[in-house]
Design a protein around this nucleic acid. Structure first.
Lengths: 166, 166
DNA sequence: TGTATTTACATAGGCGCCTAACTAATATCA
DNA sequence: TGATATTAGTTAGGCGCCTATGTAAATACA
């Protein structure tokens, strides 16, 4: 009955497991930063990398580039500003918009942490070879769920092929 | 340079992507519950399933069974109690411990949602066939990281095979 | 028996994401 | 030109996890 017991744990268990995997990844990365005596929040990386590589950007541009919501960017932006890593300037083209850019301190930290991130890349490649191609799996999953959402799939499984909301 | 650009996005991007994947899964599941007019938090599932299948349990037992921390269980327990889905009794064998069990209302909800979870299982199998064996990948990843933690891997990549903390 | 250590649990605060709601600015339309 | 719709961004609150801390009970040890 091991198979049946396993079948009892579907996406609900997957979700929890993925969360904890991510949590562990963040913790381990956090330990590396702590070893270097650096205060760094994981969520900062996406914003900093984008600003460093692409130049100043608005909250909306960052949200689009990172694939997260504006409020999330806004909160990260605030955290980064408090830490002195970015600065904001009003955009003369649109009074509502703010251009965010790395501060000198932010640039220095970005450079300092580049070797850490390079090492993380090496580890990702290593794990891909050792275990599974996580990035490819994510790409495939993203594509599959973009095609047909999890919601639709569940509703179809519940209601049958012709039932339920269209 | 597409390959090089991709290599710039290592575990840091993976972490964020996994978080968002989980978020989306929770949202889609939440929409299904909402369709049924049911108020249900994803984190309730692990606790409810364990209590329904294994009987009354303490916070510590649940934490061990679900692989999360005590405070997390404690918070979920509180949420479940407020919702009237579980009840707690003191444990005569240990005055510090509380036995948690599903209330009648909790049992009824568990039964009501069983078809939903069965449908989710179907979808999981479907996605496994369509995309990738996510559960196997998780198993393998968990095992690989239990063998050698991400922290150690990163430190080794940073410091070289002989350097750094042992 | 008294003291030190360990264990069970709750609470506080935080991280990283979300949605809802709001204000203000801009764009569109009649 | 004025009204309406859309957009940019912030804030509040919440979900689901974490660590740190604290209180109380149980256990271990001298």
């Amino acid at each position: 009955m091991a198979t049946d017991h396993t079948r009892k744990r579907g996406p609900l268990a997957i979700g929890g497991r993925l969360r904890r995997l991510v949590e562990r990844m963040d913790q381990d990365a956090g330990r590396v930063y702590a070893d270097l005596g650096v205060v760094f929040e994981q969520r900062w990386w996406g914003v900093m990398e984008h600003l460093a590589e692409q130049g100043p950007a608005s909250v909306a541009e960052l949200a689009r580039a990172l694939g997260i919501t504006q409020p999330s960017v806004s909160q990260t932006r605030r955290s980064l500003e408090v830490a002195g890593l970015i600065q904001a300037q009003s955009d003369p083209r649109d009074a509502r918009s703010r251009r965010l850019d790395l501060s000198d301190q932010g640039r220095a930290l970005y450079r300092q942490l580049a070797p850490v991130w390079a090492a993380m890349d090496v580890v990702a490649v290593e794990l891909n070879a050792e275990v599974a191609d996580v990035m490819s799996m994510l790409d495939s999953l993203d594509a599959a769920l973009a095609r047909t959402s999890l919601y639709e799939r569940i509703r179809r499984a519940m209601d049958g092929p012709q039932g339920g909301k269209g």
